[in-house]
């Protein structure tokens, strides 16, 4: 078999696999929809505001509820020391109270 044929077949197989993955994401959502509705129900009942992604510090557990001082709470000029603090930056649109 010619090398170009092998290359075209391998590339086509990869492209088909990627298309199948994309279609799988679009149609295979039964289990996911159930999980999503269970989570949404808990959010509604308990009036939750954040996803449970990072539990190591309160400002990474509830980034939408925290104040800007929390990451630097230990002493003036304290540096942020939780690893997830590097992933979670404070949203820049918040109104701050006194």
């Amino acid at each position: 078999m010619r090398k170009s044929t092998v290359f075209v077949l391998v590339t086509a197989a990869n492209a088909i696999l990627l298309s199948i993955f994309l279609l799988h994401g679009k149609y295979d959502r039964g289990e996911a929809a159930a999980a999503r509705s269970a989570s949404a129900e808990i959010v509604r009942k308990l009036r939750l505001t954040d996803l449970c992604l990072f539990t190591e510090a309160r400002y990474t557990r509830h980034p939408s509820m925290t104040d800007f001082q929390s990451p630097f709470q230990d002493h003036p000029l304290a540096l942020e020391h939780f690893p997830s603090g590097a992933l979670v930056t404070p949203p820049g649109f918040r109104r701050e109270g006194p």
């Binding site: 679009k26 992604l53 997830s84």
Partner: peptide, 16 residues
């Protein structure tokens, strides 16, 4: 990287 120093890390499957 996501877990950091957290002992409790949620296990979830993202919807594609």
């Amino acid at each position: 990287a996501l877990k950091g120093w957290a002992v409790l890390y949620p296990r979830f499957r993202l919807v594609p």
